[in-house]
């Protein structure tokens, strides 16, 4: 199994310093705290959690856009931890990103053909201009954008089209892993489905592996093989997608699931309402970080931090099991 792992993350940690002032209180926002998981070739691994739980930070850590404080990132059997910026540039070729906001992730001053040509220029300077041009056209075609748009600027496209261009940019280097950071959250629902279908189609055709980051379980449901639920910088549950939806283990997962709308008005479901706000990541509760909002909190939860353990084929970090 381990041999089939494309990406392995071990105990990765990222604390952002809160202030650098001389007299102000010091502290850290524990954005990602001791997170471990592995992604197998060809699967879609989804990371869900509410905003501010550290899922985007985790995506950026894996891509090396920010450096981790501790822990290891092993990609294709190679440990990337501690590599310098120059080494990271070559690691990023098989590991591309798709960003949340398609309005801001494309350069406003470049034509589409130049935006897509850039990754090729960087990683394949040996290719001729004509070859690169055909490659750009092919990839646009694959992503559902007509070739006559080549000379347009990003702002001349709709959100869905822009996200397709963003996907094309990630795809043009023939990557193995794509880190999709909320790729559909900025789009409206009908476009979301189109883009998700495109991603699924591309996965089959190009044997892609996805790390799919989202706050929306209903989006994740259709494309994921495995789902990890994050809460305040920790992963609280990792399960195969169908198990998460049929029998969620962690109380937080249960609460999240109960918030997903069901497109059938006759189905009645008990909604688990969480008390209070998400705690401050700079000063998270001791013990289990979720105990302050958990309906099943026990005394042990306030003191001992639960570790991920296997429960009926699912990985859960909870004292209930």
């Amino acid at each position: 199994m381990a041999a089939n792992n494309l990406l392995e993350v071990k105990n990765i940690k990222k604390y952002f310093p809160l202030s650098k002032g001389w007299f102000s209180a010091k502290g850290h926002v524990k954005a990602v705290d001791q997170v471990s998981f592995s992604i197998q070739r060809g699967e879609t691994f989804s990371l869900v959690g509410e905003s501010g739980c550290g899922k985007s930070t985790l995506g950026r850590l894996i891509n090396g856009l920010i450096k981790s404080d501790d822990g290891e990132i092993i990609f294709k059997g190679k440990n990337l931890t501690g590599a310098n910026e120059k080494a990271w540039r070559s690691y990023r070729k098989p590991m591309q990103m798709i960003f949340q906001d398609p309005y801001a992730s494309l350069s406003p001053r470049m034509k589409i053909k130049d935006i897509l040509d850039e990754p090729l220029k960087i990683h394949h300077p040996e290719l001729s201009k004509e070859t690169r041009k055909t490659m750009v056209q092919e990839i646009l075609d694959v992503c559902g954008i007509d070739a006559y748009h080549l000379d347009k600027y990003a702002h001349e496209f709709s959100g869905g089209q822009r996200q397709r261009i963003g996907i094309a940019r990630a795809l043009i280097l023939k990557p193995e892993l794509i880190i999709a950071d909320e790729p559909v959250s900025a789009l409206d629902v009908s476009i979301q489905a189109q883009v998700l279908n495109l991603l699924k189609e591309l996965q089959e055709n190009y044997q892609l592996t996805y790390l799919f980051i989202s706050h929306d379980l209903s989006v994740v449901e259709h494309i994921s093989d495995k789902i990890a639920v994050m809460y305040l910088g920790n992963i609280v549950e990792i399960s195969p997608a169908e198990d998460i939806f049929s029998r969620p283990k962690h109380p937080y997962t249960q609460a999240l699931l109960s918030a997903v709308p069901i497109p059938n008005p006759k189905v009645k479901r008990e909604r688990i309402m969480l008390k209070g706000e998400i705690p401050n990541a700079a000063n998270p509760p001791k013990g289990c970080k979720f105990h302050s909002r958990c309906p099943h909190a026990m005394d042990i939860c306030k003191t001992v931090e639960p570790q991920l353990k296997k429960v009926e084929g699912q990985m859960v970090a909870c004292h209930l099991y």
Binding site: W88, R89, A104, L106, S107, H123
Partner: peptide
């Protein structure tokens, strides 16, 4: 701090490329 600069980093662009081709025009 703009997202498209980060996106350019994520495709593996060098610093000088980001500075002169992306930051400078802005």
């Amino acid at each position: 701090e703009m997202l498209f600069i980060e996106a350019t980093r994520s495709i593996g662009a060098t610093k000088s490329r980001i500075i002169f081709k992306h930051v400078f025009p802005e």
